[in-house]
Design a protein around this nucleic acid. Structure first.
Lengths: 154, 154
DNA sequence: GTCATGTAGTGAATGTACTTCACGATGTAG
DNA sequence: CTACATCGTGAAGTACATTCACTACATGAC
């Protein structure tokens, strides 16, 4: 054997990333159950929280689903009282999906619980190590984007 | 201001983890389209690859879905020729879901493409940095498991 | 052996998420 | 004003997932 490798297998690292993501997702599922929402609808609310009142087209693009699907999700959120369809000033075709007070509260809870989770997961990691972690993560993500583009072209 | 913080926000780090997971998932979706499979069925095949021929109960447990759902997924995979239902020796109630040659080839492709992706993502990261990355990841995952247990109890 | 109880898988019914296709209503460029 | 693109939605269909009820089989108590 050429190396005594006390090496970190790349596959194992990838698996851990995926495992962590899965756990975070499971935590989200808990939130969803508590709020009586589904993950697709929570996702829509999340986007709405980042962008403010949006047309369904914009939501479809952000969620990477078809506009038709957004119609259904918004229907559900209107029924549960989380959003309303407001008239778009200047384009009578479009509707502005807008959070109600209930919806805004849900988004608030979502954001704070997200930040809370992040703090609990990474808050105790020494800054230097966390910085390395973030850098590796960032580099990897960028490398990934480049790989995807290559595939896209072929 | 108390600190000149060149600090890495924990929320940002969490978001990057989730982003990377999302990208990896998108890559999986590409694989699924190429194979004409859905993510739920690929997931089942993946588990089957890790555990070998399994009862539907075992699969339901591993996939964290109801046994009834596994019935449907296996139906689909039988129809597409990826698995067969074999008699369980010693328990005539149970069926052993078993990969066909086609299914085994798919699992093989899945495994190698997964390893390939991991190598391309993390292969160029200096070992020392990758080790830190993996350690932070591992610690975080364990911390998470402890948090989930706390919630479970309450 | 038989009887009670539990376990493995499935039919029926239901709900959500998602898609494509077709269409009406509105915006926009020429 | 006409052609064309865009915004949302009805209709129809697929996949994933659930619960509930049921059959077939296993297993331990007696």
């Amino acid at each position: 054997m050429k190396y005594i490798h006390y090496m970190t297998e790349t596959t194992e690292v990838l698996d851990r990333v995926l495992l962590l993501a899965h756990l975070v997702q499971a935590d989200m599922a808990r939130f969803e159950r508590e709020e009586g929402l589904t993950s697709a609808r929570v996702h829509l609310l999340w986007v709405l929280g980042s962008t403010g009142p949006s047309t369904q087209q914009a939501l479809a693009h952000a969620l990477e689903v078809t506009p038709r699907n957004v119609t259904g999700l918004v229907d559900g959120l209107v029924a549960s009282g989380h959003v309303t369809r407001e008239a778009h000033p200047g384009d009578r075709r479009a509707t502005l999906v807008t959070p109600t007070p209930l919806g805004a509260a849900t988004i608030e809870g979502l954001t704070s619980s997200h930040a809370d989770l992040a703090r609990r997961l990474f808050g105790d990691v020494p800054p230097a190590r966390l910085a390395v972690f973030a850098e590796v993560l960032d580099g990897t993500t960028q490398r990934f984007a480049r790989l995807m583009d290559q595939v896209q072209e072929s």
